[in-house]
Design a protein around this nucleic acid. Structure first.
Lengths: 248, 248
DNA sequence: CGCCTTCTTGAGGGTTCTCAAAGTGGGTGG
DNA sequence: CCACCCACTTTGAGAACCCTCAAGAAGGCG
């Protein structure tokens, strides 16, 4: 694609207004497209990072390795997400960035992003805001994990994944690709694969969701959202009021 | 105090180098000191926010209200933390900011922060980095909640609270004020108060921690850190390499 | 066809929850 | 100084949820 950052611009525009000059500056950035198989570590914790990773295809996770060798995934990223944007202000990685499935991603050099950051105040704020949006999703994960049982956790992640897929124009909130294995999903929501399998079957028997090959179809979205107590506002998919205070 | 943001500057300096002019600009910001009792909502979700809140005394939480009236706290803030810094790039609150104990805090007007942001590039990056540090703590909470039992959760929050208290010069990592009730702590780590009580007693019987009046004393820090699998690097308390790419 | 990964099913056990009641301690007013 | 009240903590017993272990079924790919 001629404009590697096209999808990322689309994501930024969901949450921020951007001047045409800022948009052009972003689209002018060149980036290398890489392709890796599942379980490839794009970044390892401790590394000095010089580029951010823009997911183009597949799914990427932010995970941590524990003493016993198991991994725990704190967040996932879909195409259009800059999974590593926080590496710009914090260039030493504290987390592993790992391909959860086969995937393609762009390596966007930090210095190009810094130049855009310095040249366009609205873009600088949009980038900051984007990392805050990711943080809000993490905060939501904390409350979901700390306060609900397996059925609600599953329902919530399905609601969120659908909404994010729709916002990224990858599908609709009721029918979307879902390439994770049950083992991966189970680990993300903090239950065992065995129990996840049972919960998904129950949701199927209740005629709320069905699993297709590598995809999810939500049959009864209101019911699913009620189980999840899903309130999509935390995703910030509406354009929030701008920080209008201009440089005096 | 003549310089309301003195503690916040201290926190920023833990993670970022700042030019003396940036430091002066920060210290020159004036802010109103407010005092509120426990359970006071400093900010309610949905509100348009015009000031960030710098905790001066007491504990502040970032929480969400659920349909059944219960609250779930995703993060806590200690003196020196700007609990609301993300409101600068995202001025519509998505969370409640609530006094967990009686507390004092400064209301730091957004426009003053924006002026400092615009005038000092290093400060702008330090502010961004600070919100990323908060996000990293949230990510850590996700992995702790999704992957461990009650004993490890308790151990982890005690380790983290100690380290953060020490970094903020409020105590040491083995002896620090801890003004939360067991009910509040239980809700934060996703267990019931009843069970938390039992876990704390067991930690006491094992001679690992003792509870004082409104405080914690860690008797056996290595044991506690082992239970928690605690690795303090995620707190970013060492000064990370600067993003040195200057404006060309 | 055979192997590999993934998903499913079953049974038993452990952790944590719920509900209820009693104990503790600080603060207040008599 | 004592009595009372309130919020917080502790204790106990039974139940629910989820985990562990193990084995079998299903699907993709050589």
């Amino acid at each position: 694609m001629a404009r590697p950052l096209a999808r990322f611009l689309n994501r930024l525009l969901v949450r921020s207004e951007l001047s045409t000059s800022a948009q052009k500056a972003l689209l002018a950035i060149d980036a290398r497209l890489l392709e890796k198989g599942a379980r490839w570590d794009i970044v390892r914790g401790g590394q000095r990072v010089h580029a951010a990773c823009l997911v183009e295809e597949g799914l990427v996770g932010q995970s941590e390795q524990f003493a016993d060798g198991t991994r725990r995934t704190a967040a996932y990223f879909i195409p259009g997400d800059m999974c590593n944007l926080h590496s710009l202000p914090v260039p030493v990685a504290r987390w592993n960035i790992t391909a959860l499935t086969d995937c393609k991603y762009y390596e966007v050099p930090h210095d190009a992003l810094w130049r855009a950051f310095d040249a366009h105040r609205d873009l600088a704020i949009a980038l900051w805001r984007d990392t805050v949006a990711d943080a809000t999703i993490l905060a939501k994960s904390v409350t979901v994990l700390s306060g609900s049982g397996a059925r609600q956790r599953v329902a919530h992640v399905l609601c969120e994944f659908g909404m994010r897929s729709e916002a990224a124009r990858l599908g609709s909130r009721t029918a979307f690709a879902f390439p994770l294995t049950q083992a991966q999903l189970a680990e993300m929501i903090g239950i065992t694969p065995v129990h996840l399998s049972r919960v998904l079957q129950q949701l199927g028997r209740d005629r709320i969701v069905t699993q297709l090959r590598g995809g999810i179809e939500v049959i009864d979205l209101p019911a699913l959202e009620q189980i999840a107590e899903f309130d999509p506002r935390y995703l910030m998919l509406d354009r929030v009021p701008q920080a209008t205070n201009a440089n005096p």
